[in-house]
């Protein structure tokens, strides 16, 4: 696969690069512990949108430096009124991230708080460094998590931890997060990016149509009742059976060789 640059805005503190079918969006605002501001969120949303239009991008990784993100800029939050928040970049950006049609992996180290935690939990797979700390401290500021922080913990870790996180505003470390199911693996901090990229490349190497269809099926669960989602899954599977990729996958298995998928 060829390296492709999807998007890069000099003014936005998000670096973007595609290698081996993996788009890595890296938040680069270390002076503020990668606190999310409208420019970062817009850049992330644009990156996700660009990925959807670029067939060579199979997987998206959201990464950062020592800290994934300490949350949203407090002064940005403080500057909103009820009307402006409803129409804000923040709201639209989180919607765009959750709507991404490609698999998204979060590579989380250090502080992953508030909006940063909501960003990580909006991803399909969350890999944590052993120094990662997760939390929704918004209640300590007299507000609530406003981008998924009262909903997204529940799917992964259950209603109890969701309530504890939102009501108490404390932090949990990577190992506790793993035990609760909030994250999918814990790795040494210095190996985080290499590990996530390796997993992302592995997914990018799988049948493109099937990968996209898995994502479509996963997204259906949150939008449909279980019966409808299961019926939707059957329909998606039936559609896949007509593809060249499906034929190639089964043929390669029977012939004991690596498959060569063409995305057809």
């Amino acid at each position: 696969m060829t390296d492709v640059t999807v998007s890069r805005r000099a003014s936005a503190p998000v670096a973007s690069a595609v290698v081996d079918g993996v788009l890595t969006l890296t938040i680069e605002r270390p002076e503020a512990r990668n606190a999310l501001n409208p420019a970062i969120l817009s850049a992330l949303a644009e990156g996700m949108g660009a990925a959807a239009l670029e067939p060579s991008v199979r997987v998206v990784v959201v990464a950062a430096g020592a800290d994934f993100s300490a949350g949203a800029d407090i002064d940005v939050i403080a500057g909103h009124n009820p009307a402006s928040y409803l129409a804000s970049t923040t709201r639209r950006a989180f919607d765009a991230i959750r709507a991404c049609e490609k698999p998204v992996i979060a590579a989380v180290s250090g502080y992953c708080l508030g909006g940063g935690c909501e960003l990580a939990l909006a991803c399909d797979i969350v890999i944590a460094a052993d120094d990662a700390l997760f939390g929704q401290p918004e209640i300590n500021l007299g507000i609530i998590p406003g981008a998924g922080g009262t909903q997204l913990w529940r799917e992964r870790a259950g209603a109890g931890l969701q309530a504890v996180a939102a009501f108490e505003g404390g932090m949990i470390d990577a190992f506790a997060a793993r035990r609760a199911g909030l994250v999918d693996a814990v790795v040494p901090a210095e190996a985080l990016l290499a590990h996530v990229r390796r997993r992302a490349r592995a997914i990018a190497g799988k049948a493109p149509l099937a990968t996209a269809t898995v994502k479509a099926a996963l997204r259906a669960r949150g939008r449909m009742a279980l019966d409808a989602a299961l019926a939707h899954e059957v329909a998606l599977m039936a559609g896949l059976l007509a593809t060249e990729d499906a034929k190639e996958g089964t043929r390669a298995f029977l012939e004991k060789r690596a498959p060569r998928y063409g995305g057809r």
Partner: peptide, 15 residues
């Protein structure tokens, strides 16, 4: 100490 055996092993083998 904090993860199941397989995950702890994977942690140490990650590097």
């Amino acid at each position: 100490l904090e993860l199941p055996f397989g995950e702890a092993l994977a942690f140490d083998l990650t590097r």
